[in-house]
Design a protein around this nucleic acid. Structure first.
Length: 255
DNA sequence: ATGGTGGCGCGGCCA
């Protein structure tokens, strides 16, 4: 089976691209971030016509997460247990024998800011949640926009980004804390070319010059990592007209 | 240090 994550930066704008990508790639599960739609406006009919069930937790203008799936989901969760938060950033559900947790980690704005503190607090709370989740559901996949480049290989210019937002030591430690729950970065299970990224700034022709960061991830628990046969980033949609600033990240699981 | 672009929505915030 194929599972994927894509920050679409407005599902209203990107729906044609999502439908195109679904038709071409036929993922079993696709986690979306930054849908920027209230639930009443979610394009469930169009996606159902394409053969996908939809779960969504949206809000106006900002954030919003969704899961598109060939099988219907069960045991849906839309909030972290210890966080009363209007921001729609997490969506978890079961699909067959797999538990999926879709996350849109706060960007953090800049190190030392209030938003940065919120990001680190959010990461601490999601880590505690995932400890419980993996105990309950050993076949766990955690995927989404983590807004963290795990190490310097994931940054086009590590010196320019040194201790900057998305790359700071506390953020990277938080990412390692997520892995320590019992998760592996599927991308690094395989030999990868240098300079592979999942996000490129719209500004300064970032994509054309490959000035990117790898901040979108598919993390797998040990039983799923053993089933993982490939992982990568599909840069194709980033080159389309009026693209999202993120590309889909993908993992293939046997069985 | 700033600005560069894009989405939302029509001024300024967020990324």
């Amino acid at each position: 089976m194929r599972i994927a994550s894509w920050n679409v930066n407005s599902l209203r704008v990107r729906l044609p691209q999502v439908l195109d990508w679904l038709a071409r790639n036929q993922p079993d599960l696709l986690a979306l971030q930054e849908t920027k739609l209230v639930d009443a406006d979610f394009p469930a009919a169009e996606l159902a016509a394409a053969g996908y069930h939809c779960l969504y937790s949206g809000q106006k203008t900002y954030n919003g997460v969704a899961i598109l799936s060939k099988l219907p989901g069960t045991g849906v969760l839309t909030d972290l247990p210890d966080l009363d938060d209007p921001q729609r950033r997490i969506l978890a559900a079961g699909f067959g024998d797999i538990r999926l947790v879709n996350i849109y980690v706060p960007n953090g704005s800049e190190t030392g800011s209030g938003k940065y503190a919120y990001k680190l607090d959010w990461l601490s709370k999601v880590t505690a949640f995932l400890k419980a989740e993996i105990a309950r559901y050993p076949q766990l996949a955690v995927l989404g926009d983590f807004n963290i480049a795990p190490d310097d290989r994931d940054v086009y210019d590590p010196a320019a980004w040194h201790e900057n937002i998305l790359c700071s030591t506390p953020e990277r430690q938080a990412f390692q804390g997520l892995l320590a729950v019992g998760l592996q970065d599927s991308f690094r299970l395989f030999e990868q070319p240098a300079a592979c990224f999942s996000w490129w700034d719209y500004r300064a022709a970032g994509f054309r010059r490959n000035l990117g960061l790898r901040i979108d991830h598919v993390l797998l628990s040990e039983p799923l990592a053993l089933r993982c046969t490939a992982a990568g980033i599909d840069k194709t949609p980033r080159a389309w007209e009026r693209p999202s600033d993120h590309a889909p990240v993908v993992a293939e699981l046997s069985g």
